[in-house]
Nucleic acid binder design. Structure first.
Lengths: 341, 341
DNA sequence: GGCAGAAATGACAGCGCTGTCAAATTGCAG
DNA sequence: CTGCAATTTGACAGCGCTGTCATTTCTGCC
């Protein structure tokens, strides 16, 4: 039948417990013994039973990735993160479960309780916007389940990975300034998402640095969706003096802006420059292709998971890493119209 | 501590084994006993330990969703399916694992072996294009692991869910004919994908029904990607007589066609009608919004999983269901230019 | 060389459930 | 009522691993 730990023990001439120690990378095993055991495991193609390990021990070698099923960020974003998380899990011999949460439903916390109780989840990866859900985070702490966050709003007491979105937004808008734009509008994301705050802050920073005034009329609320981008752009187009560039807080809204521009007969980038944030596949599927900020989502999923692993393996506290951003200058941005004041 | 099966047994005054029987919905339990046990479970908030069940029994209550990580169909498509699968799993008290496979890598089959051996996977959901990977299917059969497919190429000996893509494609192209088009081109998907074959077949059917000739020059190879759509469209635009409508085998390629049309100064739909297949979010993020065929991916994931559950629960053989399609007529299609011959 | 203390290993029970098979209970014909 | 089969329930071992604690082996040092 199946090769068991006991079989490996017999083959190596040690006790099952010692093989177990090797398996769990416990330190108190003589190097020579470890080598022999590992060789036998390899040779016999031994594969530990997760069920037995979970039952006997306290660990399940299971990680859950939580995501919000209401305010769904672009699914491509989540899919990429999931890919990265999975990669890191596999590398560490962990398994992953995905767990969509409907935060709008009253007892979504119950789902978390059930998940943890049922499966003895060892650790959790939290994706935006759940990263800022205090009820969720409190619950995870109560359960004593370590978690790593991707782009969390708060930077203290949190491990995981982030990108300096404020700097990125500042750089993006700075680029617009460099192209000659003076009237730059911004479309906000959903109010309480960290992404929205940072991107707005970066926008303001860039204006300040360029000595441009901050005009509240040029900042319109959006919801991160294509449709909200269309509406926001229409609103901006109703201003007495039109902006020459619009920085949308994400790509979907930027796509909406381009639609609205088309609608109004504005040619991008000749009459209006448009840029977004995230660099989703959509960015290169628009015409013209969208200038945006590239965010390495896959990599971020992987890094956050690796930090979680540090904790799970008891190797340390885990860090909040920071990954670099890249500006993707494409054809949706250009110099402002020459007749612009 | 944790409420165990034994605790429920004691509270009900029956043996643990009887509680176990109730838990597993075994038939040989008197109705009155079952009710009492279920009540106690509910009242004590009993949650069975998957680890213990997996260890003692032969079942793991785990389902794996396999997908191809090379020829990745649009990630939104997979995300939707995943959502549906997850929903059905939860409803049946099963858990789900996701498992990306790199079929191009020599030993991807090993990953499947490992998955099944490690986790004692009870059943598998196979997504396109893995549904047609004979090596994979053979392996699953060797392992004796039941599987349900989503849009499989073969219709025999397979359970899961499909859509009549050929009929859908025929209807779509038929719609173009009705609008007055006579020169309708088609952009193929990746050669060995079922989706490509069916959509081509439907295209041919519609031409035949309309009494239009099939012109091989109007059928160009694509790869399901945006870029390949651009290239294919350029090729079509090099024909001595241009088509008045292009039916691309999926939305991404249709988006590419629209880009290429723009490039060439063709106005959609005035000069050229464009339509796709799948109704991904992209379809409504284009300008003009894309006419396409809606495929209920989420629903399909759910239905396929439910069929798998039928088998896992020993309630039957499972069926290959068929779901209806819907034509989404949007603004990328219209009457052909009046000067068209 | 002998001894304390550290390092390495092992014995054993038990995690929470289910499979097997035996026992008790029920239903029903005679 | 009895007897026999069908139905319902229970006793018990054991799935494959790890925690606890005892035991053995190895150090360095007087």
């Amino acid at each position: 039948m199946r090769v068991r730990l006991e079989d490996v023990a017999r083959a190596t001439g040690v006790s099952p417990k010692t093989v177990s120690r090797v398996l769990n990378e416990e330190p108190s095993v003589k190097e020579s013994t470890r080598k022999r055991v590992l060789a036998a495991m390899e040779q016999m193609n031994y594969r530990p039973s997760p069920a037995a390990r979970g039952l006997a021990g306290s660990r399940s070698f299971l990680v859950a990735m939580l995501y919000d099923n209401n305010d769904n960020p672009a699914s491509t974003y989540l899919a990429e993160i999931q890919d990265g998380v999975l990669e890191a899990c596999n590398a560490n011999r962990y398994s992953m479960m995905v767990c969509p949460l409907r935060t709008r439903v009253q007892d979504f916390i119950r789902r978390v309780d059930a998940l943890i109780a049922d499966h003895h989840i060892d650790g959790v990866i939290v994706t935006p916007p759940l990263t800022d859900n205090v009820a969720l985070l409190r619950r995870l702490n109560e359960h004593g389940v370590p978690h790593a966050s991707i782009s969390p709003l708060r930077r203290d007491e949190t491990i995981g990975v982030r990108m300096d979105e404020q700097q990125a937004a500042k750089a993006m808008v700075g680029e617009l300034v460099r192209l000659g734009h003076r009237r730059i509008a911004h479309i906000l994301g959903i109010a309480d998402h960290g992404a929205s705050r940072w991107r707005l802050a970066g926008y303001k920073d860039a204006l300040a640095e360029a000595g441009l005034p901050f005009d509240p009329d040029y900042v319109v609320q959006g919801q991160f969706t294509f449709g909200s981008g269309v509406l926001a752009a229409r609103e901006l187009f109703s201003r007495p003096i039109l902006p020459t560039a619009i920085f949308a807080a994400n790509d979907d809204m930027a796509a909406g802006v381009m639609w609205a521009a088309n609608e109004r007969g504005l040619k991008v980038p000749r009459d209006l420059s448009v840029c977004g944030f995230d660099d989703t596949p959509l960015a290169t599927q628009l015409w013209p292709p969208l200038t945006t900020v590239r965010q390495p989502s896959r990599e971020m999923g992987k890094l956050a998971t690796e930090q979680l692993m540090e904790v799970l393996r008891g190797r340390g506290e885990g860090l909040l890493l920071q990954v670099p951003f890249t500006l993707q200058m494409r054809e949706s941005t250009g110099a402002p119209p020459s007749d612009a004041t």
